[in-house]
C-alpha cells in the first residue's frame, strides 16, 4: 500500500478532489528526509562519551603537568557552555518555552555534567568542602534546580532531583532505584517515602497551579516510584507495617487518580502494579493459613484475570478520554 493507492481509495469514495490528491501526491514525492533526531542522538552520545572520558582523564592524571591543562580545558568548556546558554537565553515563563537556538539545550547539559566533573575534582584535590560532603552535593542540586527552571530543561531537572535524593542518601535514577539502595535500614525507608510524597506534592502543585506544568511528569515519575518502592520495602520489613501499608495504598490510589487527570497511562500502570503487589502481600500476611491453603491455588490466576479486566475497561472505569 502506497500513497498512490491510498489516494485512489480516497478519490473513489469522493472524499478528495482530483486537485487536492495531486497536491498531496506532490507533497509526498518531494518530501524532505529529516535526520533531525538521528543527529540529536549522535550529539547526545557525543556529550555522554566526552564527559565520561574527561571524568576518567582527570582522575588518572592527578599530580601531573597535563593535569592542570585538563582542568583549565574543562573549566573553560563549562564557562563556554554557560556563556552560550546565557547568550541565547529566552524570557522566563512559567509555561513551556520553545528553544529557539539549536544547541542551548545540549550546551546546558554538557555544562552541567562538566560542572559536576569539575566540582568533584576540586573536592578530591583541594578538599574544597572538607568533610562536609553534603554541601558538595547540595550546591549542584540547587544550581541545577535554578537552571532547570530558568532555562526550562527537563533533563537538568531530573539531574537536580537525583541530586536532591542523593543528598538524602538515596539513589533514584530510574534504572538503579532497586539495586543501589539499601532498603533494609528503617531511616532510609522513611526518607524515601517522605521525599517521594514531597515530590508528588510538587508535581501536583505544578500541574494545578500552572507552574511549569510539563515538569509535573518528571516529578511524579521520580516521586511516585520512590514513594511506592520505599513504602513497599517498609511493608516487607517488620516495624510500623501499618503506617507504610496505608501510605503506600494511598500513593497507589493517588497514582491511579493522577493518571485520570493527567491522562497519562504510565501512572496507571505504576499504581496498578505497586497496588497489586501490596494487596497480594497483605492478603498473604494477614489471612489465616486455613483459608490461604485453598485460596493460593486460585488467587493469582483469578486476580490477574481481574487486573486484566480492569485494564481492559480502564477507559470506562476512570472515564479516560484517550
Amino acid at each position: 500500500m502506497t500513497t498512490k493507492t491510498i489516494l485512489e481509495d480516497l478519490l473513489q469514495k469522493e472524499i478528495l478532489t482530483e486537485e487536492q490528491a495531486g497536491k498531496i501526491f506532490n507533497y509526498e514525492t518531494n518530501k524532505l528526509f529529516s535526520i533531525h533526531w538521528e543527529l540529536r542522538s549522535v550529539l547526545y552520545i557525543g556529550i555522554s562519551l566526552l564527559t565520561s572520558g574527561l571524568g576518567i582523564l582527570i582522575y588518572k592524571n592527578i599530580d601531573t603537568i597535563g593535569h592542570q591543562a585538563i582542568i583549565t580545558l574543562i573549566a573553560s568548556l563549562v564557562v563556554l557552555c554557560f556563556y552560550y546558554v546565557l547568550k541565547h537565553r529566552q524570557q522566563f515563563l512559567w509555561t513551556e518555552v520553545n528553544h529557539a537556538t539549536k544547541y542551548s539545550e545540549h550546551a546546558l547539559i554538557l555544562g552541567c555534567t562538566l560542572f559536576l566533573v569539575l566540582e568533584g575534582y576540586l573536592q578530591f584535590q583541594y578538599n574544597f568542602f572538607g568533610t562536609r560532603y553534603g554541601i558538595a552535593i547540595f550546591i549542584p542540586t540547587v544550581i541545577f534546580f535554578l537552571l532547570a527552571y530558568r532555562f526550562d530543561h527537563r533533563g537538568v531537572l531530573s539531574m537536580a532531583i537525583t541530586g536532591l535524593a542523593s543528598w538524602l542518601g538515596l539513589t533514584i535514577s530510574p534504572f538503579a532505584i532497586l539495586e543501589k539502595n539499601d532498603f533494609t535500614s528503617p531511616g532510609l525507608i522513611a526518607t524515601g517515602v517522605l521525599l517521594g510524597i514531597i515530590l508528588c506534592v510538587i508535581s501536583w502543585l505544578s500541574e494545578t497551579r500552572n507552574l511549569k506544568k510539563h515538569f509535573a511528569f518528571t516529578y511524579i515519575l521520580f516521586g511516585g516510584n520512590l514513594a511506592a518502592i520505599a513504602g513497599l520495602a517498609g511493608v516487607f520489613s517488620d516495624d510500623s507495617k501499618l503506617i507504610y501499608l496505608t501510605s503506600t495504598a494511598i500513593i497507589c490510589l493517588l497514582l491511579v487518580y493522577y493518571a485520570r487527570i493527567s491522562q497519562s497511562l504510565l501512572f496507571l500502570l505504576m499504581g496498578v502494579i505497586y497496588g497489586y503487589i501490596l494487596f497480594s502481600y497483605t492478603l498473604f500476611a494477614y489471612l489465616p493459613d486455613s483459608i490461604l491453603g485453598a485460596l493460593s491455588i486460585y488467587y493469582f490466576m483469578l486476580s490477574s484475570v481481574g487486573v486484566i479486566f480492569f485494564l481492559l475497561n480502564v477507559k470506562k472505569i476512570l472515564k479516560l478520554k484517550k
Binding site: S48, C112, Y133, I137, P140, T141, R154, S158, S166
Partner: peptide, 20 residues
Amino acid sequence: AILIANQFGQTPEENNFKFG
C-alpha cells in the same frame, strides 16, 4: 529526560567521592 537523568545524573556519593 529520563534517559538523561540515568546517563548524566550520576551525582556524587558520599563514600567514594568520584564523579563522571
